[in-house]
Structure formats: structure tokens, C-alpha cells
Design a protein around this nucleic acid. Structure first.
Length: 321
DNA sequence: AAGACGAAAGTGGTTGA
DNA sequence: TCAACAACTTTCGTCTT
């Protein structure tokens, strides 16, 4: 897990005295950063709380965003979803040198040759070809499922790792990509049902499940069991339910878990049933059918879970209607 | 007529011998 | 490897709103 970097929330690396926003002398909270002196000063009593602070900002100044762009010496962030991580140098197509002069004929033919080989070599190693194909599949799949960028990046990273571990060999790229995406969603606590991912890709559920388990085993990833609560916000949005219902649903799920109602049950069904109960309680009723559809379970399952919840939690069905 | 309910039989995956 | 098993699905008839 720790290898995934960022999967767990970062702890404050700075010392607590450094981030404590109160003056040690007068207790005032109005601290002022004086970056030219590298000092942090209390705005009320003037006590210098820390000096020799490192200015992490740029050493140049810019007065407009264009100027800022022009002076910046760094490029786009490194991205795992681009098969070469977006880091490769590209030989420009203009036959001019850095100062804009035309190149000499010999230099020109040399550059031409280099350019040709760069293009040839770029996607030529089998690994790169595989990655390039996988990344475009990842892009397609995640845009179809509406997966946010950070999760795509994590999926891409997982895919790279699985290539290194030779997990892709003999398996379809599509299946592996789907598995990494599914895993990434769960790591970031934004789980998507296995069926949903399987439908969007051309991989059947069984293959996807196999690849997913392989991924977890070989990369030593531990993923907490999917929690029904993680599904709520998405389902509620799809059913256009208010946030009050969401909160109530979470409440219901927590109570259900407390009395052991959730063990061995399909989290999807639980999420669906809890939403159903909450929607009735708060007078925003949705049909079992509609909820079952977004949660990808059957009405019967919604019904069974819902009845259990109502019975065990002692919710009064009479007062609900 | 749509939605909710419940029974019965079928399905795919896990467990333990 | 196989049977037993729990959870879930499918299907369908009946009741309720």
C-alpha cells in the first residue's frame, strides 16, 4: 500500500510548532509571513516566531500569467497516463537552432536523421507499444465510466507496475487495464461495481475478477472491503436525491453495521436498501426498481435487505409513508 | 396500471472434506 | 475434486396504492 504513494493521507511533515498559527507570547492568531526577510511575525505584538524560513516560491517576479508562463522553467506535470510519462524530449520540426538561425546543411541532415530515429524508437520497444495501447484503452474506458483524472493516474501507475512484474504476459491488455482501473477506484474509495467496469470494457466479469485478484496478490496491495457507504453519493446523485437523504442513508448503514447486519451481504444491495429506506423516511420516495437499477441489483435483493433493516433497526414503517 | 410483495427454482462462487 | 451451502437472481402470481 505504501508503495502507491498518496493512497494514504499525508501526515504533516513539518513540526507542530511550525504550523501552529498562534503566537506563543500573546496568543494572537494573526501571524504574518515576511518572505523577504524569511521571518514569521506575530501581527499583534511583533514577536518573531521563526526566522530563516525557506522561501519555496520562484526567485523571479511576474506581473501577468503570460509572463509567469514565460519565466517558468518547468513543464507539464509528469503523467503516468502518457506512455512515456510525458517526459521525453521531442526534436522540433523546424530547421532552426535555439537562437532561430537556419541550420547548416550538414547539421540539417543530421537532425533529420535523429528525428527519424526518435519517431521510430518512440513506440518501438514492445513495452512501449503495450503501454501506448493500454493507455489509450484506459483513456477510453475511464471516460466512458466517468472516472476522474487522479484515479486514472493511479490506474496507469498500477498498470506500469504489473507490466514490470510481467503480469500482463499472456493476458489481454484490456482485461488488465480494466482490473487496474477497478482497483484504483476501490483504493480511492470510489468503488464501481465489477459489472459496470466489465460492461464498459470488452472483458467478462470472470476474467476481470481473476485479473483483479492477481493484481492484488502480486503487487501486495491490500484493499479494504468495499463499504456500502462509498457508493451512496454516486447512487444518490444518479437518483437526484437530496443530501439530507444521503446523510440519513449513511446513518442507517452505520447502525446496520453496528448490529452486524452487513456481514456477508452484498454492499451494493445494502447501499440500495438503505437509500430506499431513507428516501421513504424523508419523503423523497424512489421505486425499488429505480434504485435496484442504479445499484445493479434486483428488486428482490433491495426488498430483502430493506425488510431486514426495517425489522432489526426497529424503524416504524407506519410513520414512514 | 404501476409498484410492492413473497414464494420457488436457478445461478455462480466459496468452503471444507 | 466434489458436494454442501449462503447469497443473490429470475420468474411469476398476488396484493396494494
Amino acid at each position: 500500500m505504501d508503495q502507491l504513494g498518496g493512497a494514504t493521507p499525508r501526515k504533516n511533515s513539518t513540526q507542530s510548532s511550525d504550523i501552529d498559527p498562534t503566537c506563543t507570547d500573546c496568543g494572537s492568531k494573526t501571524l504574518v509571513e515576511d518572505l523577504t526577510r524569511g521571518e514569521r511575525v506575530c501581527g499583534d505584538c511583533g514577536l518573531v516566531l521563526s526566522d530563516h524560513r525557506i522561501d519555496t516560491g520562484a526567485e523571479w517576479r511576474a506581473f501577468s500569467s503570460e509572463e509567469s508562463d514565460a519565466r517558468s522553467r518547468v513543464g507539464a506535470p509528469m503523467r503516468y497516463t502518457v506512455h512515456d510519462k510525458g517526459l521525453s524530449t521531442i526534436i522540433d520540426w523546424r530547421d532552426r537552432d535555439h537562437s532561430g538561425r537556419k541550420l547548416s546543411p550538414t547539421r540539417r541532415s543530421e537532425i533529420y536523421r535523429l528525428r527519424k530515429w526518435q519517431i521510430r524508437s518512440r513506440v518501438h520497444s514492445s513495452l512501449d507499444r503495450n503501454l501506448a495501447q493500454a493507455m489509450s484503452e484506459l483513456e477510453r474506458l475511464s471516460s466512458q465510466l466517468g472516472i476522474p483524472k487522479p484515479i486514472r493516474e493511479l490506474a496507469a501507475l498500477l498498470y506500469r507496475k504489473s507490466i514490470i512484474k510481467k503480469l500482463v504476459r499472456g493476458r489481454s491488455i484490456e482485461a488488465m487495464v480494466a482490473a487496474t482501473l477497478y482497483a484504483a477506484c476501490r483504493i480511492r474509495l470510489k468503488p464501481r461495481p465489477l459489472d459496470e467496469v466489465a460492461d464498459a470494457s470488452r472483458v467478462d466479469k470472470k476474467k476481470l475478477g481473476q485479473c483483479y485478484r492477481l493484481l492484488l496478490r502480486k503487487l501486495n496491495i491490500r484493499i479494504p472491503l468495499s463499504n456500502p457507504i462509498d457508493y451512496i453519493s454516486r447512487f444518490a446523485t444518479e437518483l437526484s436525491l437530496s443530501s439530507t437523504v444521503q446523510l440519513r442513508t449513511v446513518e442507517i448503514l452505520k447502525q446496520s453495521r453496528a448490529i452486524g447486519l452487513t456481514i456477508g451481504r452484498d454492499p451494493l444491495g445494502l447501499a440500495a436498501a438503505a437509500i430506499y429506506v431513507a428516501s421513504i423516511m424523508l419523503d423523497e420516495r424512489r421505486t425499488q426498481r429505480a434504485i435496484a437499477e442504479v445499484a445493479r441489483v434486483t428488486e428482490v435483493t433491495v426488498r430483502n435487505r430493506y425488510k431486514e433493516i426495517v425489522r432489526k433497526l426497529g424503524i416504524d414503517t407506519m410513520s414512514m409513508s
